[in-house]
Simulated assay, not measured.
Amino acid sequence: MSWLILLPIIALVCGSAPAFADDDERYLNCMNSFDCGNITGAGYPFSGSDRPGYCGYPGFELSCRNQDPEITIMGSIYKLLGINNQSRTLNVSRTDYTENLCPTLFSNTSLTPNLLSSNSDHGEVSLYYGCPSPIPSGFSAQFTCNINDTDMMGYFVTVNNSVLSMTAPILITYLTTCNNSVIVPAHQSAILPILGNPTIAQLLGAINQGFDLVWSANDSLCDTCKSSGGQCGYNQTTTAFSCFCADQPQEFECTESPQASSPSTSMSSFIS
C-alpha cells in the first residue's frame, strides 16, 4: 500500500485521539485547581473559582477576596493560610481578629462535626468583654474596645479556665461577671511566649499565625479514584462521593473502556 493511500487512513483513525471535546464536562472541570494568593494548586476536597461545587466535598468551598483565600466554617469566615495535602491539614485564622481584638459580633469558633478536628498543637485564648472595674490586682492583660458605639473594657487569658481557677480563683470569679466571652484558637507553641509578656501585639501575632484543622472527606475513596486516572468529586443529587472519569462518572474508580485499545490495534493492522 502506498503512503499516499495510507496517510488519509491514519488521519481517519487517529484524528479523534485527543478526544477532550468528548470527555465528561465534570471530569474536565475538576482538573482545574483553586489558585488565590499564596494558595495554588488546591484540588479535592476543595471547590471554588474554576472548580464547581461538585468538584469538592460540602463544607470545603473556598473564595478569593483581594487575593486572600478564605473558607467559611459554620457561618464564620476564616483566612486560609496553608494546605498540607500529606497530613490533610488546613491552617486558618479568624478574619475578625486580623487587626484588633474588637469584633463586631461575639462568636466562638465552631467546627463542622465529623469533618474538621483540631491537631495536637491546638491552644486557645479566652477574650472577655464588658468587664466591670476595678479588676483584681496583678492582672494586666487588658484592652479597650468600642463595639457598636459602646466603650468597654476587655481582658484576655492564655490558659484554660480550669488552670486559672486553681492558680487565680479570685480572677476567674471576676471574669464570670463580664458581659461576653469568646474563645479563639491558636497554635499552643505561639501562645506560650505570651505567658511571660501578655501584650496585645503579641496576642494578635499569635492569632494571625492561625491554627491547624485536620479534615476528613472520603479521602481513601479519592486516593483510589485518582490512582485510576479519575477526578475526585461529589454527587450533589445522591450526596455521595463520585469519581469523574473521562467517559462518565463512576462510584469509586475509573474502568478502562473496551474500545480504548482498538485504535492502536487497527493502526497495526493497516501498517502491516
Results as ranks from 00 to 15, higher is better:
171 L>Y: 06
182 V>T: 09
177 T>G: 08
188 Q>S: 09
177 T>W: 07
161 N>D: 09
173 T>V: 13
162 S>Q: 14
170 I>L: 08
188 Q>V: 00
202 Q>F: 00
187 H>R: 09
175 L>C: 02
177 T>V: 04
167 T>A: 14
196 G>K: 04
170 I>M: 07
172 I>L: 07
171 L>I: 04
164 L>W: 15
196 G>F: 15
182 V>R: 03
164 L>P: 09
169 P>C: 01
194 I>E: 03
201 A>H: 08
187 H>V: 00
166 M>F: 06
185 P>G: 03
174 Y>N: 06
172 I>H: 02
174 Y>E: 00
168 A>L: 04
196 G>P: 00
186 A>K: 02
167 T>K: 15
168 A>F: 07
188 Q>M: 09
178 C>F: 15
175 L>M: 05
172 I>D: 01
196 G>N: 08
183 I>L: 05
176 T>E: 06
172 I>T: 04
197 N>R: 05
159 V>D: 04
166 M>E: 00
192 L>W: 11
168 A>K: 06
160 N>K: 07
187 H>D: 08
179 N>W: 08
199 T>H: 04
175 L>I: 05
186 A>E: 11
191 I>M: 08
176 T>A: 06
167 T>H: 10
197 N>V: 00
178 C>M: 13
180 N>W: 05
159 V>M: 01
164 L>Q: 08
183 I>M: 05
196 G>H: 12
184 V>H: 06
190 A>Q: 14
197 N>P: 01
191 I>S: 02
173 T>L: 08
184 V>G: 11
180 N>Y: 11
195 L>V: 09
187 H>G: 11
176 T>Y: 06
175 L>Y: 04
191 I>V: 12
166 M>S: 12
167 T>V: 15
194 I>F: 05
190 A>P: 00
164 L>K: 13
174 Y>A: 07
171 L>M: 09
177 T>H: 14
192 L>M: 10
202 Q>P: 00
203 L>A: 04
183 I>Y: 05
193 P>E: 01
159 V>R: 04
184 V>T: 10
193 P>L: 01
177 T>N: 15
168 A>T: 01
200 I>K: 07
161 N>Q: 10
163 V>C: 01
194 I>Q: 07
171 L>T: 01
163 V>E: 12
193 P>Y: 08
194 I>R: 04
200 I>L: 04
